[in-house]
Write a protein that binds this DNA or RNA. Structure first.
Length: 711
DNA sequence: TTAGGGTTAG
C-alpha cells in the first residue's frame, strides 16, 4: 500500500470508520510499515514482539467489556444547579436525584463536587441505586468521565471505573472510547494501553485517542508505530490522526517522517486544516527546519493565534529571539488576540534577550488581558525576574500565584541557587516538601547546585542521599557533577575523583569538567591533567578542551606533548578562533577581536580596561577559574568570556559595590555551521547583559550562515 | 450522533 498513491483513493470517511478486528493480537504480529518509505527508518524496523514493545501492562483483568447492548435512555433533567447546591449541600428536591445533580455539577465544571457526590452515591448499598431511585446510567458515567478528565486524578478514575465494572455497566463503543480517553488524559497510559489492547472493536476515535495518548505520554516511537498499524488495519486516518502523528514526529525530531506526513496531508486535501497547519509548523520547527515552518505559516489561509504562537515559539526555540520578537509585533499589528500561550512564549524570549523593557510590556499585557493567574506564564515570569537577579520581584510573582506546581518551585529555587542565596533555596525546597509538592530531578539539580554554590556541604549530601532513598529519583550525571563540585570546593579532590569512579554510569564530560574546575582552584595539576585528557577524549571536536590541555602541558613545561596536541588540532581541521566581543550602544553594534588594535581609540580603550580590572581586583573580583595556566596566544570560548567581561566593565555596564564577581551564566549560542559562538549573555552583579550578539547578522532566516562575510 | 486534533513555563 502506497500512501502517496493508491491508498489515498481507498474508502475514507472523515467522520469515522469502524474497524472490526476479530483477533487483534494475531493481526499485531503482522509486518508493519505499510506507509511508503517509513520502513527505511531504523526506528520503525526490527524486532517487535507486540505493538507496545517491551512495556509491561498493569493487570486489569481480561474481558473488561461485555458485549455492547443498546444504550440506556439518558435521564432527563434540568441543567440548573439550583441554590441549594450552591450552598454546598445536597439537593433536597424530590424529583432531583443524585445522578442528575452530578451531571449538573459537571455541566458547570464543578468536577470535584460532582465526584464527591458520586463517592457518597457509590458508598450506598447496591451502588447502582442512587438512593433516590436513580440508576447510574450512561449519561451520568459520561459526566463522571468528564469530571475525572477535569481533575486529572488517578484515584477518581479508579473509583469511577471500578463502579462501572462492579455494577455490570454495559459499554458501547462510545463509552469504551470515553473510558479509554479518561485513562489517557489522567496519565494512566499503561492501563490505557491494556484497555485498547483488549478492545474487541475499535473505530477511528479509539485509534486517535490511543495515538494521541501515547504522544502525550512522550512515547513517540510507539505512537508512530500505532499510527502505521492504523493505516494497515483501517486504511484510514483523519485530520486528528495526522495531527497526532505530526506531534510524534516532532517529538522524535525526525523531519523525514514529518515531511512524508506533510505529503500525505496535501494529497488528502487536509493541508488547509488549521490544526494540521499548526502541527506542521511545530513539527518543522522542532525538527530544525525553521524555513519550512515559516513556509507553512505563510501558506495558512487564516493565521490563528495558535499558528502565530507556534511559529514564534519555533524561532525562539532555535535562538532567533529577535526574529521571534519581530513576529510577535507583527502578530500584534495583525489584530489577532493574544492568549496566555503567547505571553508565556514572549516572557521566555524576554528572559533570554535580557530585555527588561519588552518583559515589562509582556507582563503588563498578561495582566491586562486577564491571564494574570496563568500558571505557565507566571512561572515564566518568576524565571525572568530570577534571571534578572530581581529576586524580590520573582518572589512576589511566585507568592501571588494561586496555583503552583513543581516547575514553578523549580524556577524559584533555581533562581536563588544561581544568585548564591543557598540558604533561601534550601528553605524554599523544605517548604515545597512541606506543602506536599513532589520534587523531580530538576528540583534536586537546583537545590544541589545551591548547596554547592553556597558551600552547604552537609545539606548537599543529605539531599543527594535522599534522592535515592526517600524520593526514589535516580541521580543523573548533572547531580553527580554538582556533588563533585561540592567536594571540590571543600578541596576534597580525591573524594570527588572517587565519586566519579563510583558513579553507576560512565562519567560524563560535565563530571570531568567539574573535577577540572576544582583542580584549577586547588592547583592539582596531576588530577587536572587527567580530567582534561578525559574531556579531550570525549569531545574530540571541542576546541576548548584542547586549549585546556595545551595550557596544562605548557605550564608543566611539556612542550613536546603540547606540540602533539597542536598537530592533532591541525589534522582534524580545527582552528582556534580569535576571541571576539560585541556590544550594542545606541543600537549600534561594536565588535572587538582579541588583542584588536584596529579601533582608532584602542590605546585609550585598553588603558581604561586595565584600570578597571585593577579596580575590580582591588574590590575582590577574581578572574581566576577560567584558566589555570598561561594563555597560549590563540583563544576560543574561554578566553572570549574573559575578554567580554573586561569589555562589560570598560563600558560601565557594571557596578561592583562589594567586590562581586562577574559570571557567565547563560551559556552560548553556537552556530551549527561554523561552530562560532554567536551569542553570549553575561551576568554582571545580578543584571543580565547580552554581551555578544551576532545572531541578527550571523544567520539569515533561511538558515544560511553568513559568518564568512562577517568574519 | 455522541467521543478523538495544534501552541506555553523549570
Amino acid at each position: 500500500m502506497e500512501v502517496g498513491t493508491s491508498c489515498l483513493h481507498k474508502k475514507y470517511t472523515s467522520n469515522g470508520l469502524s474497524c472490526c478486528i476479530v483477533d487483534p493480537r494475531s493481526s499485531w504480529k503482522r509486518k508493519i510499515g505499510t506507509l511508503s518509505g517509513f520502513e527505511q527508518y531504523p526506528l520503525f524496523r526490527g524486532r517487535r514482539n507486540s505493538i507496545w514493545g517491551t512495556v509491561r501492562c498493569a493487570s486489569l483483568g481480561s474481558g473488561l467489556y461485555p458485549k455492547p447492548r443498546r444504550r440506556p435512555t439518558p435521564i432527563p433533567g434540568n441543567f440548573d444547579v439550583g441554590p441549594d447546591l450552591d450552598d454546598g449541600r445536597l439537593a433536597k428536591s424530590a424529583n432531583s436525584g443524585l445522578c442528575q445533580q452530578i451531571e449538573n455539577l459537571v455541566f458547570f465544571r464543578r468536577y470535584r463536587e460532582a465526584l464527591e457526590l458520586f463517592e457518597i452515591l457509590s458508598s450506598r448499598d447496591g451502588g447502582s441505586d442512587g438512593g433516590g431511585g436513580d440508576v447510574v446510567g450512561l449519561s451520568t458515567y459520561d459526566s463522571l468521565v468528564s469530571a475525572c478528565i477535569g481533575t486529572g486524578s488517578v484515584g477518581d478514575v479508579k473509583m469511577v471505573f471500578r463502579h462501572m465494572l462492579e455494577t455490570g455497566f454495559e459499554f458501547d463503543q462510545y463509552m469504551r472510547n470515553r473510558v479509554l480517553l479518561m485513562h489517557v488524559k489522567c496519565g494512566m497510559i499503561i492501563d490505557a494501553r491494556q484497555l485498547f489492547e483488549e478492545m474487541q472493536e475499535r473505530n477511528i476515535v479509539s485509534w486517535n485517542t490511543m495515538i494521541s495518548g501515547l504522544v502525550d505520554a512522550g512515547v513517540y516511537e510507539d505512537a508512530f508505530r500505532l499510527f502505521l498499524l492504523m493505516w494497515e488495519e483501517c486504511s484510514a486516518a483523519s485530520a486528528r490522526t495526522f495531527a497526532s502523528a505530526l506531534r510524534a514526529s516532532a517529538g522524535l525530531g525526525i523531519a523525514l517522517s514529518g515531511r512524508q506526513l506533510h505529503s500525505c496531508v496535501v494529497k488528502m486535501g487536509l493541508s488547509t486544516d488549521t490544526f494540521i497547519s499548526c502541527a506542521l509548523i511545530d513539527m518543522y520547527s522542532k525538527c530544525g527546519c525553521i524555513s519550512e515552518a515559516q513556509w507553512v505559516f505563510d501558506e495558512m489561509p487564516e493565521k490563528t493565534v495558535v499558528g502565530w504562537n507556534t511559529i514564534i515559539a519555533g524561532y525562539a526555540l532555535h535562538g532567533y529571539s529577535e526574529e521571534a520578537l519581530d513576529l510577535y509585533y507583527e502578530m500584534h499589528d495583525s489584530g489577532v488576540k493574544m492568549d496566555h500561550f503567547t505571553y508565556s512564549i514572549i516572557i521566555r524570549i524576554c528572559a533570554r534577550l535580557a530585555s527588561l523593557e519588552h518583559a515589562k510590556q509582556a507582563h503588563a499585557g498578561l495582566v491586562r488581558n486577564g491571564f494574570g493567574l496563568d500558571i505557565v506564564a507566571n512561572t515564566a515570569l518568576v524565571d525572568l525576574y530570577c534571571k534578572w537577579g530581581r529576586m524580590d520581584d520573582a518572589r512576589n510573582v511566585f507568592d501571588k500565584m494561586p496555583k503552583k506546581n513543581a516547575i514553578s518551585w523549580n524556577a524559584l529555587i533555581g533562581g536563588y541557587a544561581n544568585h548564591g542565596q543557598g540558604n533561601e533555596a534550601v528553605n524554599m525546597f523544605e517548604r515545597m516538601l512541606k506543602e506536599g509538592f513532589v520534587p523531580n530531578h530538576v528540583t534536586f539539580l537546583a537545590v544541589l547546585s545551591a548547596c554547592s554554590y553556597s558551600g552547604l556541604f552537609d545539606k548537599g549530601w543529605q539531599y543527594f542521599e535522599s534522592m535515592t532513598h526517600k524520593h526514589k529519583i535516580k541521580p543523573r550525571a548533572m547531580h553527580y557533577a554538582c556533588m563533585i563540585e561540592l567536594l571540590g570546593r571543600e578541596g576534597l579532590l580525591d573524594d570527588a575523583f572517587a565519586l566519579i569512579r563510583e558513579a553507576p554510569f560512565s562519567p560524563t564530560a560535565n563530571m570531568w569538567a567539574a573535577l577540572l574546575t576544582a583542580c584549577r582552584v586547588h592547583k592539582n595539576l596531576e588530577l587536572g591533567k587527567l580530567a582534561a585528557e578525559k574531556l579531550y577524549g570525549m569531545q574530540p571536536e571541542k576546541v576548548g578542551n584542547y586549549i585546556v590541555l595545551l595550557n596544562i602541558y605548557y605550564s608543566t613545561g611539556r612542550s613536546a606533548e603540547a606540540a602533539k596536541v597542536l598537530e592533532t588540532l591541525k589534522k582534524r581541521g580545527l582552528r582556534l578562533l580569535p576571541a571576539c566581543s560585541w556590544i550594542e550602544i545606541k543600537k549600534q553594534p561594536y565588535r572587538f577581536l582579541f588583542a584588536d588594535k584596529s579601533h582608532p581609540e584602542s590605546d585609550e580603550i585598553y588603558r581604561r580596561l586595565d584600570e578597571l580590572m585593577e579596580h575590580l581586583v582591588e574590590m575582590g573580583y577574581s578572574p581566576n577559574g577560567k584558566s589555570l595556566l598561561p594563555d597560549v596566544g590563540a583563544h576560543e570560548e574561554q578566553a572570549s568570556i574573559y575578554h567580554s567581561e573586561k569589555l562589560a566593565v570598560a563600558f560601565g555596564l557594571t557596578s561592583t559595590p562589594n567586590g562581586t564577581s562577574l559570571q557567565v551564566v547563560q551559556g552560548h549560542h553556537i552556530c551549527q555551521d561554523c561552530h562560532t559562538v554567536i551569542k553570549l549573555i553575561t551576568r554582571v552583579t545580578g543584571r543580565y547583559i547580552v554581551i555578544r550578539d551576532a545572531s541578527r547578522f550571523h544567520h539569515f532566516r533561511d538558515g544560511s550562515c553568513s559568518c564568512g562575510d562577517y568574519w
